[in-house]
Simulated scan of single mutants.
Amino acid sequence: MIYTITVNPSIDYVLQLKQLNTGEVNRTSSDVKLPGGKGINVSRILKALKIDSTALGFVGGATGSMFEELLSQHELKTSFTKVKEDTRINVKINAVEQNEETEINGAGPMISDDERQAFMNNLNGIGAGDIVIMAGSLCKNLDAKFYLDIAKTIQKQGAEFIIDTTGQALLDTLPLHPLVVKPNHHELADLFNVKLNSEQEIVTYARKLLDKGAKHVLVSMAGDGALLVTKDTAYKANAPKGTVINSVGAGDSMIAGFAGTFMETKDPIESFHMGAACGSATAFSQDIAVKTKIDEVYQDISITEL
């Protein structure tokens, strides 16, 4: 079983308009409310690929109820920990004529010690053969060690984990040998306080994450494709042709495609191929990609060894 953890899920209120004029009244051409959160996006792609997963996380208040109602439409298996404070709302503004995306993200609820412990207790059923995917930001009072505590717990129980976050929260987990880490090229540069000006430099610094303990490193590079870096080899997936409609969830979709395929095949190259297809398919979609779009994009992606 694959478990996805979204510590700080959200209702994503996605607005589309021609232009965003700050300080003025703006009217949308369309809007949609979506169940948001990086782990949630992963579970939705896994559902599209017909791979079972269970979504974990904290939800609370009236917005938490609305979040669960929105999520129920996607028929995902969930096991959320209920909290007293409200689930957050994020606003995503897509100004079409300006070709700009603006995000305003809520902070999320405060998590009490009892609520944190209830969440940790909920991990008891995870064991050998399972993969746990931890993705996204933490609630405002959870420190960077929270992901590390989760990783230690599920590793003792025999499961593997994938982590998609940034900064110290990512670095702390590397000695526990995550199956995959997935910084984009900007996040990779920030981890080491450098500027990366070439693919070779990206590969060099991705290998530093391998040296620190990661088993595989995925690096997304937007319109320049993506890289998979392993101990012995680096591979590149091209960026297929298409119109980027909404980049929200593209990186999460890449992780889902990789994790789901790896669980079934143990083949990192095929997993990378499917991950790249899922990521691009979502970027070319208004919402998380559907299977037909993933299959279409998959045919336009080639994997080359660097």
Results as ranks from 00 to 15, higher is better:
Ile2Phe: 02
Ile5His: 09
Thr6Ala: 05
Ser10Cys: 10
Val14Ala: 12
Leu15Phe: 14
Gln16His: 13
Lys18Asn: 15
Leu20Asn: 04
Thr22Lys: 14
Glu24Lys: 15
Asp31Val: 04
Val32Asp: 11
Val32Gln: 13
Leu34His: 12
Pro35Gln: 02
Gly37Leu: 11
Gly37Pro: 11
Lys38Leu: 08
Ile40Gln: 02
Ile45Ser: 00
Ala48Glu: 15
Lys50His: 14
Ser53Glu: 09
Ser53Ile: 04
Ala55Phe: 02
Ala55Cys: 14
Gly57Val: 04
Val59His: 12
Gly60His: 05
Phe67Val: 05
Leu70Gln: 10
Leu71Lys: 07
Leu71Ser: 09
Ser72Glu: 14
Leu76Trp: 04
Leu76Ser: 10
Lys82Asp: 06
Val83Ala: 08
Arg88Ile: 00
Ile89Ser: 04
Val91Gly: 03
Val91Ser: 10
Val96Thr: 15
Gln98Ser: 12
Glu101Phe: 01
Thr102Tyr: 11
Thr102Leu: 13
Gly106Val: 07
Pro109Asp: 05
Pro109Ser: 03
Ile111Gln: 03
Ser112Gln: 04
Ser112Arg: 05
Ser112Asn: 07
Asp114Leu: 14
Gln117Thr: 13
Ala118Trp: 01
Ala118Cys: 12
Met120Glu: 10
Asn121Gly: 05
Asn121Thr: 11
Ile126Ser: 05
Ala128Met: 13
Ile131Phe: 08
Ile133Thr: 04
Ile133Trp: 00
Ala135Trp: 05
Ser137Phe: 00
Ser137Glu: 05
Leu138Asp: 05
Leu138Lys: 11
Lys140Ser: 13
Asn141Ile: 10
Leu148Gln: 10
Ile150Gly: 07
Gln155Pro: 02
Lys156Ala: 14
Lys156Thr: 14
Lys156Gly: 10
Gln157Thr: 00
Glu160Cys: 08
Phe161Thr: 02
Phe161Gly: 00
Ile163Asp: 06
Ala169Tyr: 03
Leu170Phe: 01
Leu170Tyr: 01
Leu170Met: 11
Leu176Asp: 03
His177Ile: 00
His177Tyr: 09
Pro178Tyr: 00
Pro178Gly: 00
Val180Trp: 01
Val181His: 04
Lys182His: 08
Lys182Gln: 08
His185Ser: 12
His185Leu: 03
His186Ile: 15
Glu187Tyr: 07
Leu188Arg: 10
Leu188Ser: 11
Leu191Arg: 03
Asn193Glu: 14
Val194Phe: 05
Lys195Trp: 00
Glu201Ala: 12
Val203Tyr: 09
Thr204Lys: 15
Tyr205His: 14
Lys208Ser: 10
Asp211Met: 04
Ala214Val: 01
Leu218Cys: 11
Ala222Ile: 05
Asp224Tyr: 11
Gly225Val: 06
Ala226Tyr: 01
Val229Lys: 00
Val229Tyr: 00
Thr230His: 05
Lys236Phe: 09
Lys241His: 12
Gly242Tyr: 03
Thr243Trp: 00
Val244Leu: 09
Ile245Gln: 14
Asn246Gly: 08
Val248Gly: 09
Gly249Leu: 02
Ala250Glu: 03
Asp252Val: 08
Ile255Ser: 07
Ala259Thr: 04
Phe262Val: 07
Met263Ala: 15
Glu264Ser: 14
Asp267Arg: 01
Pro268Ile: 12
Pro268His: 06
Glu270Met: 13
Ser271Arg: 07
Phe272Met: 11
His273Cys: 09
Gly275Met: 06
Gly275Ser: 09
Gly279Val: 07
Ser280Lys: 01
Ala281His: 06
Gln286Glu: 15
Ala289Asp: 06
Thr292Val: 13
Ser302Asn: 14
Thr304Met: 12
Leu306Val: 13
